[in-house]
């Protein structure tokens, strides 16, 4: 099966869900016109990133949200599967940095960001609760996994997604560009390319990386969204700094071919990993 993916590299407004929804609707129409099967928006695409005290104000309850319902309905009407980023309020009033997979009028999966960066220029744990579940999930286009930004800087998340069966890793981010000491590109852009290529070729899966653009109080979200194939090759690269909508193809046979040529997942010693992790865990927490 070959599917067409769209990388919706948008510039969300900070804390203005209504305006951001309009942006989503516009891009979805464009993607639908281009016969896209799966359209991915960046981290917190409906809200913007540096929300701070706006978190409770912009949070959506997936069980009862007009905004999400509009997008769910649109996934049905346009036949485009969608990944959107938002602040999720849980029944117990914890707030999560979440991304939802919507398909054919259904909410298929929500990933709650697990690793909330709270250092340097980041302060997420002050405002948000960390997700506690990491699962791949089935879509009509095969099994996928969603990770959000900092999640990808913890290789264990990639490992678990791959071994939970994901063929496509949807990686959404709101990554501020920085680092002016490389000849060709921002230091942060270089770091992301390394991570995406390494993830793809270590686990023989597609990486659909979608980063946002625009500024929030001088933090410069730098775009550079990309589609990387299971051999670690970049197939599509979105613009740096500018809004963009670009398309690429995901071919299930390429995953099969990569995993046939490099049967690394087959050879993985889950039992060994588990055993050693249990030992390390016990030692780290002084349970022995």
């Amino acid at each position: 099966m070959v599917i067409k993916v769209g990388l919706g590299q948008i510039k969300p407004a900070l804390g203005d869900v209504k305006r951001n929804l309009e942006t989503h609707l516009k891009v979805i129409e464009q993607a639908a016109a281009a016969n896209v099967d799966l359209l991915v928006f960046p981290e917190l695409s409906l809200t913007g990133y540096y929300l701070q005290d706006l978190v409770p104000e912009v949070a959506l309850d997936p069980e009862n949200s007009d905004v999400l319902q509009q997008l769910i309905d649109l996934s049905h009407r346009t036949n485009v599967d969608l990944v959107v980023g938002f602040v999720e309020v849980a029944a117990d009033y914890r707030f999560f940095n979440s991304a939802a997979y919507l398909s054919q009028g259904r909410l298929v999966h929500i990933h709650r960001k697990i690793y909330l960066p709270t250092y340097g220029m980041f302060d997420e744990s002050r405002y948000l609760a960390a997700g506690e579940v990491l699962r791949a999930f089935d879509t009509r286009f095969g099994r996928m996994g969603i990770l959000i930004c900092e999640d990808l800087w913890h290789p264990s998340t990639l490992y678990l997604m791959a071994h939970d069966g994901a063929h496509v890793l949807i990686a959404v981010s709101a990554s501020p560009g920085r680092g002016l000491r490389r000849p060709d590109q921002l230091g942060s852009a270089y770091a992301w390319e390394s991570i995406n290529r390494s993830a793809a070729q270590s686990y023989m899966l597609y990486v659909v990386y979608v980063n946002r653009v625009g500024f929030e109080d001088g933090a410069m979200f730098s775009g550079g969204s990309e589609l990387v194939d299971p051999f670690g090759r970049c197939l599509v690269k979105a613009k740096t700094f500018d809004e963009d909508l670009c398309f690429g193809e995901i071919d299930a046979l390429e995953v099969r071919r990569a995993r046939t040529l490099y049967p690394l997942l087959r050879d993985e010693r889950l039992d060994l990993t588990l055993r050693e992790l249990q030992r390390i865990y016990a030692r780290r927490h002084q349970l022995e």
Partner: peptide, 14 residues
Amino acid sequence: KFNPALATESITRF
């Protein structure tokens, strides 16, 4: 190694 082209691009967009 400071890259003035990249700095210019970043700052003008800012």
